[in-house]
Amino acid sequence: MRLRIDDMTCDGCARAVTRTIQRLDPEAQVAVDRPGGTADVTTKAESEALVNALTKAGYPAEVLAA
């Protein structure tokens, strides 16, 4: 799925986004495009759970494509 993720301003933010996603699914594959503000994620986790976890971590997110 592709997520739009706000407030990723540095590489540390991109790593935090990846860690947050992998806490929900340790086997998730995450490709962050920090300048574009998106992440392509292959995961077994529910999209709603990802959005909620990222938002709680300070990175408001929304699903662009499933």
Rank of each mutant, 00 (worst) to 15 (best):
A66D: 08
Q22M: 13
Y59H: 09
D6V: 07
T42Q: 13
P60I: 09
M1D: 00
V41S: 02
A14S: 14
P35I: 05
A49Y: 03
T42Y: 03
I21G: 03
D33P: 05
A28V: 07
C13H: 07
E46K: 15
V63L: 13
Q22H: 05
K56W: 02
R19W: 11
L24W: 00
S47E: 13
R4F: 08
M1S: 02
S47I: 11
A14V: 09
R23S: 12
A28P: 02
C10Q: 10
G36M: 06
A66S: 07
D7F: 14
T9F: 13
S47C: 08
P60T: 06
R4D: 03
A16F: 08
P60E: 07
D25H: 06
R34S: 09
G58W: 05
L3A: 01
L50I: 12
T18F: 08
R34K: 14
D33M: 09
V63W: 00
E46Q: 14
T18Q: 09
A45S: 09
L64R: 00
T20W: 09
D25V: 08
D33V: 06
L54E: 02
A28D: 00
I5H: 04
V30W: 04
A28N: 01
G58T: 07
T43R: 03
A49K: 11
V63A: 04
I21V: 15
